[in-house]
Design a binder for these strands. Structure first.
Length: 830
RNA sequence: GCGAAAGUGGCGGAAUUGGUAGACGCGCUGGAUUUAGGAUCCAGUGGGUAAUUCCCGUGGGGGUUCGAAUCCCCCCUUUCGCACCA
């Protein structure tokens, strides 16, 4: 009777041994190649770790363990992104103390991660909600301020007039307050900003360093997010006034086709334009309607283009003709100048708008080799072409016209060259409790005064009750608000906004390199040793915002001399979502799978395995409950056959490379070496763990087939040993507990953590026979089994002599044949 | 709406560079073992067909090619992001 696979005891045993030996702690060792494997740190929510975490961290752990076995000094840290709204919401909803709630969750989740057997350097844990961490957020804020990268300006917030408080977008979904259903208003409020736009060009240009190690789709999204556009600013003089409507365009070559102007509903000029106009009331009510929508809803509503005429006209500075000025919902104040010239013939949105309101459409660009006019246009032509109806610029191709017209504008002083970005500065102010206090004091005499460095941290005050109403919670704590001006020592008050939590996650990876240093935020030697991060793994949902802020911080820190690298991350892996029954797991849908239950039932190794086996990392993972059972079965299968052979193979010597073997044993040996090759490539080059695992499964199946043949002689047993050894080593990054146990039972005195990754022998991985397929007119008609050493001529000769092939060739004429060496022959016949 | 992806058997997926579609796993079917059930081991399993036969087949439609899941065009569906969720 063989011993059953008792994952519970086995996993507990190895977890405590790893903890005891501080197995995964590392020091900066200049004699070893270093590798920094980083996963996005979790938010310690009340629900504990979820499948998304398990997937993320299982992927990272495979890489960390694999690299350790490949001789790298591996930094693999974890921490807690522990400031943020959920803690505050818990406090509002069930009066949980945010600090206690958060620290409890951390405790729970730490135990869960340990129970998964992840190989973290636990001595480097970072907890962002502790003053020892957020103190340095404040320090960075001050340093950025010194560098002119911080400013205060009015910014929009969602405001609930009933709760008298600012709402997050998710609390204002559908335009109603999450607590009281009151309609949400948009309000302007003074906010702190980081000047990320000052780095727009560098963020854009340095992306070239990220190719090809960042996914192309992430780079594209970032590029589009920055949205650099090169064009001109040009003013349209308003009739009977001194005002000009400033517009920005990248397609100045289309200006002769500008038959109207469109302003955003928040454009400052509107008031003046409609003064005394019969359209005034209609415009005002349109603006009111726009105001009542949140930013997100407004964007959604802009799908249906809507607008009103202001009653005013402007001159088109090129045609000198009068064109009407409109206000419309699809022009945003945030972008460009908040006003655009409407060129319906050559812009889709303008075209749609013009059709809807019967505005003139004038063709000024002709597609190469085509003629078109407004009458027969059924859609806008947005490409480049040759100019027509454009006065002295006629017959110029677009790019030339753009340059000439730009020169003309500059000469005439009616506009300038301009580069515009879609990227906006990073608003970091939050009117919330559970965040980093912004280190600023307002003094009636001295104005806005930064808190001196020596006075950091500005501690988040204790607070009795968070109500979620009445403005920023810490503004109600008098002892906090009332202070003395650091400059003149007179009474002053503190800033009560806290920071966006994206600040915390912008530099935590640097803190991991020395999480204990308390005299400064970072230890330069440690940073230089470990940075850049070699592999960063996290959800695709962070493709733009987090990863943009993360890159921005790195660049600022580089300019401060704190980091040497241009880019923080060499290789990025974005994992897909964990889906069940076709939908994202969520409590409201009731399709949540709890990792806790899986671990209890199947163990950590099986749980890890399924997450890695079910899909490649970048794709969404569709959860199904039976899948994990298959992984559990597979581990049990390996457990049984390994234990069956271990007593008879543990003391065997290594099998020489050129040993003469039976056909069966040879087959197993070839498969073993092929598997080592395949798994190594899959991890190292493709990070496709699902196919790595499937080939490991194939090798186990092969071993069972061999076992069934019942061949027992010393050399065959040595092959079995080679196979089992390879299996245990190859699988150990995926299922570390089971493999540690088998490794030990095979008589290895040291843990598998630092065992050497197996190396395949190319000669032994080569099969003796290969299959070449024969196609007739692209259809598969026959397969040839030939010696792998056979020459191309031999293979071709054999194909032409093949019985099945001959029947297809009868009465036909061979037109040509295509030969793909050692793979395929396609004979084209007529 | 804008930006970015994905779609292959009953299911998750494989096919790495345009060259054997469906590896591996789940499920299902049959067999062995067992007092029985479970577990285990072996075999089969895209659809159609009497067939190891031929035909069809990678969301739908069109195209390029000797050859397309893979490249191009159009359409449909799903997912992610859109700046205060993290």
């Amino acid at each position: 009777m063989t011993e059953s696979y008792d994952f519970k005891n086995l996993e507990a045993k190895w977890q405590s041994l790893w903890a005891e030996s501080r197995e995964f702690e590392v020091t900066e060792d200049p004699t070893k190649p270093e590798l920094y494997c980083l996963e996005m740190l979790p938010y310690p929510s009340g629900g504990g770790i979820h499948m998304g975490h398990v997937r993320n961290y299982s992927i990272g752990d495979v890489v960390a363990r694999y690299k350790r076995m490949s001789g790298y000094n591996v930094l693999h840290p974890i921490g807690w992104d522990s400031l943020g709204m959920p803690a505050e919401n818990a406090a509002i909803q069930h009066k949980a103390h945010p600090a206690r709630w958060t620290l409890n969750n951390i405790k729970k989740m730490r135990a869960q991660l340990k129970r998964m057997g992840y190989s973290y350097a636990w001595d480097r844990e970072v907890t962002t909600c502790l003053p020892e961490y957020y103190k340095w957020n404040q320090w960075f804020f001050l340093k950025m301020m010194e560098r002119g990268l911080v400013y205060r300006q009015k910014g929009k917030v969602n405001w609930c007039p009933n709760c008298q408080t600012v709402l997050a977008n998710e609390q204002a979904e559908g335009g109603h307050c999450w607590r009281c259903e009151t309609e949400v208003e948009e309000r302007e409020q003074e906010q702190w900003f980081f000047k990320i736009t000052a780095y727009a060009d560098r963020l854009l240009e340095d992306m070239s360093q990220l190719v090809p190690n960042w996914p192309e789709n992430v780079l594209t999204m970032q590029r589009n997010w920055i949205g650099k556009s090169v064009g001109v600013r040009i003013g349209f003089p308003v009739v009977d006034s001194n005002y000009k409507v400033e517009t920005f365009t990248t397609r100045i070559d289309t200006i002769y086709g500008a038959t109207f102007l469109i302003l955003s509903s928040e454009h400052p000029l509107i008031g003046k334009l409609i003064e005394g106009s019969p359209e005034k009331e209609r415009v005002l009510s349109f603006i009111e309607r726009q105001k009542s929508l949140s930013y997100k809803d407004r964007i959604a509503a802009a799908a249906c283009k809507e607008g009103v005429f202001t009653g005013s006209f402007a001159y088109n500075p090129f045609t000198n003709k009068l064109i009407p000025i409109w206000v419309a919902n699809f022009v945003l104040i945030e972008y460009g100048t908040g006003a655009v010239m409407g060129v319906p013939a050559h812009d889709e949105r303008d075209f749609e708008f013009a059709l809807q309101y019967g505005l003139p459409i004038k063709v000024v660009i002709q597609p190469p080799g085509e003629e078109s006019d407004g009458a027969q246009l059924d859609q806008a032509y947005t490409g480049e072409g040759v100019l027509v109806n454009s006065g002295e610029f006629n017959s110029l191709p677009s790019p030339v016209a753009i340059e000439r017209m730009t020169e003309y504008i500059v000469q005439q002083g009616i506009g300038q060259r301009n580069v515009d970005y879609r990227l906006m500065d990073w608003g970091i102010s939050r009117q919330r409790y559970w965040g980093t206090p912004i280190p600023i004091v307002y003094c009636p005499k001295c104005g806005t005064v930064p808190v001196p460095e020596e006075e950091l941290p500005v501690l988040l005050p204790e607070i009795k009750e968070i109500t979620g109403t009445g403005g920023s919670p810490i503004s109600q704590v008098e002892e906090f608000v009332n202070t003395k001006c650091p400059k003149c020592n007179e009474p002053a008050w503190r800033e009560t906004d806290t920071m966006d939590t994206f600040v915390d996650s912008s530099w935590y990876h640097l803190r991991y390199t020395d999480a204990k240093i308390d005299t400064k935020p970072l230890n330069p030697e440690a940073v230089d040793y470990w940075m850049p991060v070699d592999l960063y793994i996290g959800g695709i949902e962070h493709a733009v915002m987090h990863l943009m802020y993360f890159r921005f911080f790195n660049k600022v820190l580089k300019d401060m001399g704190l980091v040497k690298v241009d880019e923080p991350v060499v290789h990025l892996l974005t994992q897909g979502m964990v889906i069940k029954d076709g939908a994202k797991m969520s409590k409201s849908k009731g399709n949540v799978v709890e990792p806790k239950e899986l671990i209890e039932r199947y163990g950590a190794d099986s749980t890890r395995l399924f997450c890695l086996f079910a899909a490649p990392p970048e794709k969404d993972l569709d959860w199904n409950d039976q899948g994990i059972e298959g992984c559990y079965r597979f581990l049990s299968r390996l457990w049984r056959i390994a234990n069956k052979y271990i007593p008879s193979i543990r003391n065997l010597e290594e099998l020489p490379k050129d040993a003469r073997l039976s056909a069966e044993a040879k087959k197993l040996r070839v498969k073993t070496h092929q598997t080592i090759k395949k798994v190594t490539i899959d991890i190292e080059e493709r990070m496709h763990f699902n196919t790595a695992l499937s080939s490991i499964m194939e090798l186990v199946n092969e071993l069972y087939r061999f076992d069934l043949a019942g061949e027992i002689n010393p050399d065959s047993l040595k092959v079995v040993k080679e196979t089992i050894q390879a299996l245990v080593l190859l699988l150990s990054p995926f299922a570390p507990h089971l493999c540690e146990e088998l490794w030990q039972r095979m008589g290895n005195p040291n843990k598998i953590t630092f065992a050497s990754w197996p190396i395949y022998n190319a000669e032994l991985a080569t099969e003796e026979k290969i299959t070449v397929v024969v196609q007739i007119n692209g259809k598969l008609r026959s397969r040839l089994t030939v010696d792998s050493q056979a020459s191309d001529e031999e293979i071709k000769r054999e194909a032409m002599a093949d019985k099945k092939v001959l029947t297809y060739l009868q009465g036909k004429k061979i037109v040509k044949s295509i030969y793909v060496p050692k793979k395929l022959i396609n004979i084209v016949v007529k």
